[in-house]
């Protein structure tokens, strides 16, 4: 069990942040399960500090026009389109 694990209100808040709709039963189950899971994650505190030697290099390509999906193909899975654009709900 985690001492700081989120209660039901916090679970709802995180769901809002993530834009995931939850019903009341899911909120209740997740509250219990998160306490267990986050409690287990807290054992990461026992991990020593490790010197990380990231041996990584950026991979870049020239910014040139090349073949891509047509507008029709790109829109083919959209639930609704209008005049060749994706249609979405109001932003505000």
């Amino acid at each position: 069990m985690s001492e700081t694990s989120p209660g039901p209100e916090e679970v709802r808040h995180v769901a809002d942040l993530a834009r995931v709709g939850l019903d009341d039963e899911e909120v209740e189950r997740f509250t219990d399960q998160f306490a267990d899971i986050l409690g287990y994650f807290e054992t990461l505190e026992e991990v020593p500090e490790v010197e990380r030697e990231a041996d990584l290099a950026n991979v870049m390509r020239a910014d040139e026009v090349r073949e891509s999906l047509s507008q029709d193909e790109a829109l083919s899975n959209a639930p609704e389109t209008e005049d060749g654009y994706f249609k979405g709900p109001n932003v505000s």
């Binding site: 959209a78 639930p79 979405g88």
Partner: peptide, 12 residues
Amino acid sequence: VRYGNSGGFEGN
């Protein structure tokens, strides 16, 4: 919006 289950077009 681009693909997947639609949430409809009502509300924000």
